[in-house]
Amino acid sequence: EPLWIRPDAPSRCTWQLGRPASESPHHHTAPAKSPKILPDILKKIGDTPMVRINKIGKKFGLKCELLAKCEFFNAGGSVKDRISLRMIEDAERDGTLKPGDTIIEPTSGNTGIGLALAAAVRGYRCIIVMPEKMSSEKVDVLRALGAEIVRTPTNARFDSPESHVGVAWRLKNEIPNSHILDQYRNASNPLAHYDTTADEILQQCDGKLDMLVASVGTGGTITGIARKLKEKCPGCRIIGVDPEGSILAEPEELNQTEQTTYEVEGIGYDFIPTVLDRTVVDKWFKSNDEEAFTFARMLIAQEGLLCGGSAGSTVAVAVKAAQELQEGQRCVVILPDSVRNYMTKFLSDRWMLQKGFLKEEDLTEKKPWWWHLRVQELGLSAPLTVLPTITCGHTIEILREKGFDQAPVVDEAGVILGMVTLGNMLSSLLAGKVQPSDQVGKVIYKQFKQIRLTDTLGRLSHILEMDHFALVVHEQIQYHSTGKSSQRQMVFGVVTAIDLLNFVAAQERDQK
């Protein structure tokens, strides 16, 4: 057995438009009618409502009807409940999964919650491996369901041993009777949507819809739904939504950006999952974080739909894509998950301010006199920076000697690579993860907040409520011999709460 199987392995699926269902090699399930009293909570997966979006479509000038398939009504709160249950049931049916076995899954959280929910009911041990950027709410729900959680670096490539995929496979090879159901490759993922989600949409719309818009992560949702719609409703256009920084969209030119990270969760990847059939997507749109969270908040405030950030991405694209539809036509959007997962993220004004998705003037509360002053007023001194090749031991000596707790790590040209902190280095040394002679590049981390000289002290204040420091950066445009230009970030300084307090105190003292 291989040590790991690539999540982007070539698909062996034989589905073709027009091929009889009787030739399918898979076990198919028909939607079942729910009894009045459910035998367990797993029976509350599927049969989610279709809700008309009344205000947002009109606000953006849509002539067509805009409908939302509300997947956050599933038992675990997301569309991923469907595939989690289906993968477990299919693994039980073919004898792969037996009582007492362990389920391991690399996930952005929602599939993990679905699997942990099913594992709690069915009696399996469950280990979820997820990147650090995923919300604390997801972690809390997983723990409450009895799952064990392993976190991995957000910026690790999918084929790196440190990625959530790599760590999951390492655990599988170490733990007896453990299984990775593997949402990236498992046919049960798109089949769950082909058999149930798509049929529900067709039934709820009486077979009449002209466009379907869905955000894409593993691709199982859009693949399964689109294949069924292509068979039953061939005139329906399928629109895929991919965040900026991901590479799922086609044509490839759409993916060209210097951005590699994004805040919206559960969609987009740096590889093409095996289950994603991009041939059934008629057109791709890219979405960005700001519009995703703005539209998610709009869905909550104006439509009462308590959905997550990827739902915002989907609707932001839908109001663009559906401009081509006329009166009497219908566009369906998939709202994948609930706001429950993001209470401390985009639902929080403070978080939105820190990330730059909300401006101070958007909030009406009274601010102190210094709130709208610029960061450049602080008069920061030149920063202490270190090269990635310097040793951890030497870096600790320098920081202690100069009285700093942290320093930016830059390359020879001064471009920011990340940050090192005294606390992080000492804990890594004590844990045996690094040696004093190791290069400081081994303990770089990139989960820090950046701020510009033109940003306000109010925004800085919000950042420092949650973080010990902020890195002050400025952009530099560099022209190359080819005539092309590129933008790079340079370090201007490091600012802490002490710097802000000293500035405010000094100004008030001078005024007296």
Rank of each mutant, 00 (worst) to 15 (best):
S437G: 14
L335K: 01
P436C: 13
V410C: 10
V264I: 14
V280S: 11
G414F: 12
V473N: 12
G403S: 14
V375E: 04
D438T: 07
T385W: 06
I334T: 14
F295D: 01
G356S: 10
L426R: 10
L464W: 08
R400W: 10
K283Y: 08
T421G: 01
A470S: 13
V275W: 01
V375L: 10
K402N: 12
D362L: 09
H474Q: 14
M425I: 14
K442H: 12
M490A: 12
H462A: 13
H462S: 11
P368M: 06
P336L: 06
V491L: 12
V473A: 14
A321M: 11
L363Y: 01
R278Q: 05
I416Y: 14
H394V: 15
R509N: 05
N255D: 03
T482I: 09
R374Q: 05
V504S: 07
G441H: 07
D405C: 01
E252F: 06
C307A: 12
G245T: 06
L453Y: 06
G245V: 06
V333W: 01
I390A: 06
M352V: 04
F271Y: 07
F285L: 12
Q302D: 12
E258Y: 07
Y262R: 01
Q376N: 09
L471W: 15
Q476C: 08
T260M: 15
T257A: 11
V275K: 03
M490T: 01
D362M: 08
G458V: 09
T391R: 01
S437V: 13
V415L: 11
N288V: 07
T260L: 01
V264S: 01
Y269D: 01
P368T: 04
W371L: 09
A311N: 06
H394T: 10
Q256G: 11
K449D: 10
V241P: 05
V440Y: 05
Q507L: 09
T260A: 06
T421F: 01
T294S: 09
N341S: 06
A322V: 01
Q329C: 11
S313D: 06
H474S: 09
A292C: 09
L453V: 11
T385A: 13
S485E: 13
L460V: 13
A413M: 13
L353F: 15
A407D: 01
L353S: 08
V443G: 14
F285I: 12
G240N: 01
H462D: 11
K345S: 05
E303V: 09
F404I: 15
I451V: 14
I396H: 14
T482M: 11
H474W: 05
V386S: 08
N424V: 12
T261N: 08
D438R: 15
L373K: 07
G418C: 07
E475G: 15
R340F: 01
E412A: 13
S381Y: 10
L358S: 01
K345F: 01
I334R: 04
M352R: 06
G356R: 08
H394P: 11
F295I: 07
K345R: 08
G483P: 15
R400F: 08
L248N: 03
F404H: 05
T279S: 09
G483L: 09
I416M: 14
E324S: 08
L347H: 01
S428M: 05
Q329D: 04
K442C: 12
G379Y: 15
G423Y: 01
L305P: 04
Q439N: 11
L358G: 07
L373Y: 13
I498E: 13
E244R: 01
K359S: 13
S481R: 14
Y479P: 05
P336C: 08
S481I: 10
E412F: 09
P383Q: 08
E412C: 12
T260V: 10
K345Y: 01
R297M: 04
S287L: 12
I451R: 09
E324R: 01
R278H: 01
T389A: 01
F293I: 01
S481T: 15
N341L: 01
E475S: 01
L325P: 01
H462M: 09
E291V: 14
S310P: 01
I498T: 15
L500C: 13
V494I: 15
T364R: 09
L248F: 05
D438Y: 13
V386H: 07
V241R: 01
V319A: 12
K442G: 08
R459H: 15
G393L: 11
I396D: 10
G309I: 06
T496F: 12
V420H: 01
Q487S: 10
V410T: 12
T344L: 05
L471R: 01
K283P: 09
V332M: 14
E290P: 09
E258M: 09
L430F: 13
D455C: 13
D411N: 09
L363P: 13
D282K: 13
G304S: 05
Q435I: 12
T482E: 05
S313L: 05
A413T: 12
Q476V: 07
A413R: 10
L248Y: 01
R400M: 07
T389P: 14
L417P: 10
T454D: 01
L347T: 01
S287M: 08
T421A: 13
V495E: 01
I238C: 08
E377N: 01
D270H: 07
F285A: 14
A382V: 12
S310T: 12
E303C: 01
A407M: 04
Q302A: 04
V504L: 07
Q487K: 15
D277R: 01
P243R: 01
I463K: 14
V319G: 05
V494F: 10
H468G: 01
S461M: 13
D349V: 09
L471C: 15
F357H: 09
G483R: 13
C331Y: 01
L305C: 07
Q489A: 10
Q256K: 15
D455R: 01
E397F: 11
L373G: 15
G240F: 01
F295M: 11
I267W: 01
V315M: 09
E377M: 15
T314M: 11
L429H: 15
C392L: 11
A382Q: 13
A311D: 14
Q435S: 11
V319D: 05
D289Q: 01
C392Y: 11
L399Y: 13
R350I: 07
F503P: 11
F469Y: 13
E265V: 01
P383G: 07
V440P: 08
K433D: 01
A413E: 14
K320P: 01
E361N: 14
V491R: 01
T456D: 12
L254Y: 08
L460M: 10
T257P: 04
P383F: 08
V333A: 14
R350F: 04
Q376V: 06
N341H: 01
L399K: 01
L457E: 01
D510V: 13
V241K: 01
Q439E: 07
K512A: 14
A470Y: 01
K320F: 09
K433R: 10
W370M: 06
P368A: 07
W284S: 03
D467W: 11
E258W: 10
S481P: 01
Q256I: 10
V280F: 10
L305S: 01
K402Y: 06
K484V: 12
T257C: 08
M425S: 05
L299K: 10
G493L: 12
I239L: 05
T274G: 06
L460D: 01
K402T: 13
S348A: 13
M419V: 12
I463F: 13
G414M: 01
E258S: 08
Y479S: 11
E465I: 01
P251R: 15
V415D: 13
Y269M: 01
G312V: 01
E465C: 15
V281G: 04
I396K: 04
F492R: 11
L501G: 01
D277V: 01
V495G: 12
K402V: 12
P383M: 13
I451S: 01
N288Y: 14
P336Y: 06
S338L: 01
L471Y: 09
P436H: 13
K355D: 03
C331I: 09
V319W: 01
L378P: 12
E475F: 08
A249E: 07
V410E: 13
D277W: 01
I498Q: 01
I477L: 14
T344E: 06
T279W: 14
S486C: 12
E327F: 08
E253M: 01
F293H: 06
P243W: 03
S485C: 11
P383R: 06
R452P: 01
G493A: 15
A470T: 12
K484I: 13
Y445S: 10
Q329G: 11
E327K: 10
V494G: 04
T456E: 15
S437E: 13
G483A: 15
V473Q: 10
K366I: 14
I451Y: 09
A249C: 01
E397G: 14
S481E: 14
G418Y: 07
